[in-house]
Write a protein that binds this DNA or RNA. Structure first.
Lengths: 244, 244
DNA sequence: GGCTGTGAACTCCTTCACAGCG
DNA sequence: CGCTGTGAAGGAGTTCACAGCC
């Protein structure tokens, strides 16, 4: 009855036997977020010619403690470090990339060629690591046909056809909240099962569709919360609670 | 010794007395993220003329279950619902906004007037709820002086002076990874303690500085992970685990 | 001795289930 | 009766601490 609604929906967990070498399946969200950071750090280290890295160094660069780094890697299965030495940078990077599914081919469409859509189209993260930007859509006749990052903006009407012909399997939604749900429905109907939503709405999508959300407002508001707290009790807390 | 490095750093927790009516302090991250969603849903409901909402309806619209909605609200302190009726939309929205610190005045600077910076400058989330965009900076002479959303882009050299004169207390970093850490250091030195980072690097910031990160690459990669998993065992899992 | 890999303890978050008010 | 508010149970994720290999 209840649709998936946002945040890493779809297939995880599984609840299978808590068996021996549990293979890289159903990794916790928190671990996944960190894996992406490790991968980035490893790429930088690779570029600097580093061959091995200790968990301490890697963890520091990633902004986490080394215990959790080691635990995260242990969840992946196999052994990727040498005791007394550290991790082989290239090997670990390759394994992380494979685990994350970056050795698949991800054909991405951007839905909404406004400022944000155009900005993201130029973003390097969309042109590396298995991701390829293959189509951009918009509803505005003034925008359709414009060239964005080498791609002509297509009319929203052609969404279904283009998804099929371009084998799009991932969508980034950068459109106004008002049209987001409707476009999401069309994407899903057209077979797209992976959606990254930048529109400020909670998308309802059927089970089996992975939806994630990026939300600047949310981040600003959380920042405001912490900042507000800081103001409330400048510096050291006076040990007593303030009441109202 | 270890700096704060990303993600809701700064002052939370406190560890104070686990006393009675624990006032809206040190709310868990997960709760904060949901509060921002509730607030958005409430605003929509308000616009539709709704006066009260049950936890069930609100939770559904927010994409969570009602138990956690009620638990979240209970963490805020006071009672905001009427049993048998539901929540007063306006009153709850106001309380959430206050709790999140949105009744403070947040003066935001965007650092980096590239595509992304300009796109965010026009984003409504930066012009509501206590946030006010007050300055935009860039290093590129060709960009400096351009008008973005009614503001002239200022040279990066004037960062410190402008932060002081404009009373900037929050920064959004939309610049290349290569210059992000250095700019972050300058922001911190200039007294900014709240930073939202869009650059693809792990920022190191001293304790007491709140840093949050938005990362499209991360989201795409996590999406790829789930999608990859889905491919591995199409549709329903056959109840037995597949091994390799 | 250095550093990984991991059980076990711990802490935090979520879900359950129901008491209690309207 | 309906729906909130919350203690208690349960499940997840993190940290500790150390055994085990290099």
């Amino acid at each position: 009855m209840r649709p998936a609604a946002e945040t890493g929906a779809g297939r995880h967990d599984g609840g299978g036997a808590p068996d021996a070498g549990a293979v890289a399946r159903g990794l916790p969200e928190a671990t996944l977020e960190r894996l992406t950071v490790y991968l980035r750090v490893l790429h930088v280290a690779e570029g600097e010619g580093k061959v091995t890295l200790s968990s301490d160094v890697l963890a520091n660069a990633a902004g986490v403690n080394s215990a959790i780094l080691r635990k995260d890697l242990s969840l992946l299965g196999g052994s990727f470090g040498r005791r007394g030495v550290g991790y082989d940078v290239a090997r670990l990077a390759e394994h992380l990339a494979t685990t994350l599914g970056l050795r698949e081919q991800w054909r991405v469409a951007i839905v909404g060629a406004g400022n944000l859509g155009r900005a993201l189209a130029g973003y390097a993260g969309l042109r590396n690591n298995g991701f390829e930007l293959t189509a951009i859509f918009d509803m505005d006749p003034d925008v359709i046909g414009n060239i964005v990052n080498g791609l002509a903006v297509r009319p929203a009407e052609s969404l279904e056809a283009a998804i099929e012909s371009e084998h799009v399997n991932m969508a980034v939604m950068t459109l106004p909240g008002a049209s987001a749900q409707q476009m999401c429905d069309r994407l899903v109907a057209a077979g797209v099962r992976n959606i990254l939503n930048f529109a400020p709405v909670v998308l309802q999508a059927p089970d089996g569709v992975n939806v994630r959300k990026v939300d600047m407002s949310r981040e600003l508001q959380i920042l405001a919360y912490y900042a507000h707290q800081d103001i409330g009790h400048q510096d050291a807390v006076p040990a007593e609670d303030v009441g109202s």
